[in-house]
Amino acid sequence: MRSAGYRLFGTTADVGVSAWGGSLGEVCAQAARGMFAVLVDLRSVRAREPYPLEACGEDAGSMLVAFLNELLFLHTTREIVLRRFEVLVASPDRRLGTARPHSRLRATAWGEAIEASRHTIETEIKAATYHRLLVARRNGRWRARVILDV
């Protein structure tokens, strides 16, 4: 198994992404890649423009869901597809209002405007859900599982 990556799996109605990585930031980035792999053939996407974004939640799980939903919002309203993600999870800092650990991230996503001639959007994803949501650390490695409502 590669040190960081993602895998897609099917449920009766929907699609799930499981992701792994060496840090929480890395696992969030891989989950995002997995989600965009559901939307579009990632090989057709060029990492041309950077799109900065932030997300926060009650814990690592809801932060990841908020991050993916923010990316979906950018995808549908800016009409872009994304393929590369860099995610920094803020350390807990009471002064910045991040008293809870693993609850706030800052990210840059790279991608480009959708061009009908090069990009086929395969599916419409309504949202990343909390269903069977999992973000966990074991033996120094991070794992995540998110189910997408398509």
Binding site: F9, G10, T11, T12, A13, D14, V15, T123, V150
Partner: peptide
């Protein structure tokens, strides 16, 4: 109601 997953 779906009987098969989208993948399947």
């Amino acid at each position: 109601g779906r009987a098969l997953s989208r993948h399947a």
